[in-house]
Amino acid sequence: MSKPPGDPLPDTGPGGAPAEPQLQGSPSVTDDDPNTALYREGLEVKALTQWQLFRRKFFRHKAAMVALFVLVVVFTAALLAETIAPYGYEELDLANATLGPTLEDNHFFGTDKLGRDYFSRVLYGTRTSVRVALVVALLSTVIGTLIGAIAGYFGGWIENVLMRTTDLVLTLPGLAVLIAAAALLGNGSPYRVAVILALLLWTSLARIVRGSFLSLREKEFVEAAKASGASDWRIIFRHILPNALSPIIVNATLVVATAILIEATLSFLGFGITPPTPALGSLIEDGRNSMLTDWWLVTLPGLTIVLIGLCINFLGDGLRDALDPTQQVRG
């Protein structure tokens, strides 16, 4: 497990911290010493870069690998709905209404009471949900990171104001406020829903980022950067942020699942994305009336949400394990 030759990055131990000097004390013992060079294998402290360590742990995480694969398939299929879907999502075919799932005519998920192909509708609905969720993840991550970074780096009254605001947003019962906001501000458009979600989902990330910045700003490399005259913004983005990325990445991943769930809930309640734009939540609401007879109308869009959510959670778990330097590789 020796380090590859010519690796440009400095040695880091398993803890991500610089490794102990390999040999202490006597200068007579060096790599050239034939006596020790013979058995370096046994003596050497294992040294892997953080990136190697991440890859090694992440690829070992079987559940995360499977989840990643499924997610890529589902997301690609959803975003390419126009080419993949066998029918348009509003294509009526009353002769073939309320068919159960079948391979005939590609009605894999059956049809609804107007004969619309349910697989196509679910696919288009997933596309809407995925788009909204990705926008939410991006926006809320940017907001949360900025607010957390500024609060943690500058401290003082800036931190106080920002963090009290965060606490206040956290005091509000989240989902209820989102429902109210969507009901009062929403107009059924996916992008408005995305913005509303992002404006309320940044708080936990802001707290995490603030925590990392609080501890990182005391580190020697920040002192060094300051001493060499780097500006505050340069220090924040160039020096500290790269070291605080792990929880941000994990959080952004999990926010995608949260956003899909909340968007579906809002659309189900009728306050989110409204027809004709297809969304998984409103599909379930549509199917609710006949759910005792046409089981697929409620079950299949719901299972789609569960599948995406499960994969994101397993992926997030794998990322967390792989990015957390304090965790050992599972035996």
Partner: peptide
């Protein structure tokens, strides 16, 4: 974590 509460309730 992945299951929408409303969907589970319907099921």
């Amino acid at each position: 974590f992945s299951m929408p509460v409303f969907w589970f309730a319907l099921i």
